[in-house]
């Protein structure tokens, strides 16, 4: 007897999955793009950005945390869900201080790329203009808290891979913010180093390597040329990063 392949259906397309894969894992392996920011294939799913919210058998679920179960009927690329995603992206823009034209990450930034993908033409909602610091203390890296979207990828990378626990989230609600675990709160007083995993995972321009920020001219960067739907996450720019779907 032939073992029947397990499948789920995304927007009418049947795709296979392996036991233990989430909907996001299965979708990426099948080259179906589900917008996301806090998801990274090398880390335990977080489910906080909510961009990957899809409809699974009539219920809203985050694709990155929802296990694939045979026969699931999933809606992903619909007008309603993409409008939802646009509103969530706008919320992230107004919550922080995201000035794309002045940001060294422009063109390589996933937040900006997702904004293009969901057709965001303005931030629409009232800006919060929070007062946030910039930490240029480290010799090789600068942390600009203005651009942090609280995806916790650096927190997870530093804790789970680098075993250094350099980053954390402090505060609750709208006051939740990224902090650096050192007595001074400065990156220079940690053992953060160039090879750290946490140095490569920021999807936005919050953690940037100094002196390399303009080595690729604006206009020739990843998302300047192709949609995030096609090229995927910006982490693949970094050596040593795995491509999604394959570990």
């Amino acid at each position: 007897m032939q073992l029947e392949e397990q499948t789920i259906t995304i927007d009418g397309q049947k795709i296979p999955f392996q036991s233990g894969q989430t909907i996001m894992d299965a979708a990426l392996a099948a080259k179906i793009y589900i917008p996301h920011l806090c998801y990274h294939p090398e880390f335990k799913p977080h489910g906080s950005c909510r961009l990957c919210t899809v409809m699974v058998n009539g219920r809203y679920e985050s694709a990155c945390t929802m296990p694939s179960v045979a026969g699931q009927e999933i809606l992903n690329n619909t007008k309603e869900l993409n409008e939802n995603r646009r509103a969530l992206t706008q919320m992230l823009f107004v919550e922080g201080n995201h000035i794309c034209p002045g940001c060294p990450k422009t063109g390589n930034c996933q937040l900006q790329a997702v904004a293009y993908y969901v057709g965001m033409l303005s931030s629409h909602y009232q800006h919060f203009y929070p007062y946030r610091d910039l930490d240029p203390s480290h010799p090789d890296y600068v942390v600009d808290f203005n651009r942090c979207i609280l995806c916790e990828l650096c927190v997870r990378a530093s804790r789970d891979v680098d075993k250094k626990n350099i980053f954390a989230i402090s505060g609750r609600g709208i006051k939740a913010h990224l902090i650096i675990n050192s007595p001074s709160g400065k990156l220079e007083d940690t053992d953060f180093a160039v090879g750290d995993k946490a140095a490569f995972v920021c999807p936005v321009g919050a953690i940037l390597r100094k002196r390399t920020r303009y080595t690729t001219p604006i206009g020739e960067r990843l998302y300047d040329k192709q949609s995030i739907r096609i090229v995927g996450d910006s982490q693949q720019l970094h050596a040593g990063a795995t491509k999604y779907g394959r570990k």
Partner: peptide, 13 residues
């Protein structure tokens, strides 16, 4: 609690 985008930002909006 501030964990997810819609609740963290949406409640303030």
């Amino acid at each position: 609690c501030g964990f997810c985008t819609p609740c963290r930002v949406g409640t303030s909006l």
